[in-house]
Amino acid sequence: MYSYTVRDWVTVGLFGALWGAVELTLGSVLHLLFPPQADTFLAGLVLGGVGVAIALTGRHFVPRRGSVLLIGIVAALIKLLSPTDAQDLARVLGPFLAILVESLLMEGVLLLVRTPRLWAFIVGGALAVGWNLPHKFVMMRLFYGRGFDQVYQKMVEDGAQMLGVGLAAALLILAILLIARLVVGGIGGWGAWALGGAVARRIARRGPAAD
């Protein structure tokens, strides 16, 4: 991190601000449009996909280790300390941890690959958005403790019994939700690769002032 130049830190700040701005504006709109139950299924999916695309696009312009994680830390702190959202703790703490884990997962994949590659962006994006599914359960476990495990198990059993389907069907639904997230994340990663490349080429055509 000590090898980062002023330009790198400014870029980290800018992309962190962009991700934070999306969380604040689009997040608020989605929370208003859809009920809280849709958070897991829709709001998290959309915000995760866009966030992943922004963070990985930022990696194009700060091709150094840890840059995606730093962008995530900046975005997460903006979300945590924003005046509009800080009033509702449950709506802030969840996204704060989600952003941190998502950026950590993306950074982990990029660290393993070392030189940026398209498939690494896709895998990193897929893993990051894929985290959205277990995130809800992890947060509930964190908030409510061991009691939540029993509540969840009971709800799944009762729900399956009420709908007349087996427990395997519940697992199938979870698997479909996970696959949807992986696909959206992969598209986000691929989009970031394409977008970063397009902007870099466009700026390079204009003159030597930028990258």
Partner: peptide, 19 residues
């Protein structure tokens, strides 16, 4: 981590203009 603090301060001031 002065750079990270700088990036955070900069980001906070730029959220509005970026939006």
């Amino acid at each position: 981590l002065r750079g990270l603090g700088f990036a955070l301060a900069l980001a906070m001031n730029l959220v509005g203009p970026l939006q």
